[in-house]
Amino acid sequence: MSSLAELQSLMTSAIFKGHAADIEESLLAGRADPARRFNIYRNNTFLSLSAHLKAVFPVTAKLGDERFFAYAANEFIRRSPPREPRLSAYGAEFPKFLARFPASRAMPILAEMASLEWAVQSALTTGTMPSVSLDALIQAGPEAAQARLALQPGLNFILSRWPLAMLWMASGEIAEPPARVSTRLAVWRAADSVRVVSLSKPRFAFWRALVLGLPLEAAAARAVARDDGFDFPAELRGLFGAGLVTGIAPQPNLH
């Protein structure tokens, strides 16, 4: 007789391989076929995880056709099952999976929409930090140019070839295939809601440079390189005003 550890390992394998031959003799099911009964657990695992993925990626599911999504989700679960019981963390790799999955290569928009939907999910499950005011930066005086700004931890960026924000707002309900358009989005949580905001090219470069840890002056330079009309003071006011800045390093010298 196998140990409980061995039995559980065989049962796990049976769930993912789809046949219960290795454990059939261990099981009882009254007058029913034990292997057939065991398949209930397999169905529960795959159906509940598919439902989770559909709840996290509803627009992707709609854009790709529900049957295709069910197929893709099933393959994803088989290849990349969850590794922890906190399901809110499950699905981070799904956009990459869709990008490489042969059956979805003809629709690259699916992987990009999934990236946006995962950014929304991340924002919903990532904590927010208290924001700091622009005054704190102003008090740093000339040293502010070399300050590094910490931004909200749930802030994510999406770069796409498709009008993702429009499609997401319309929940994927579109009459015709969308035309390509370069899209830069920022996603973050503000209080109890998630903000999905379309960014201009220079603002996208500025915010991303800050998240990468560049000093303010260097981050602004990246923005100016894309648009020499970049209004740095107004951009700073907007950034702080949105509650996105959570820290300034080094701390401004107030003496």
Binding site: Q8, S9, M11, T12, S13, I15, F16, Y41, N44, T45, S48, L49, H52, P81, P82, R83, E84, P85, L87, Y90
Partner: peptide
């Protein structure tokens, strides 16, 4: 089981 969460 085997590090996989079965969600059941």
């Amino acid at each position: 089981g085997d590090g996989i969460y079965l969600n059941d």
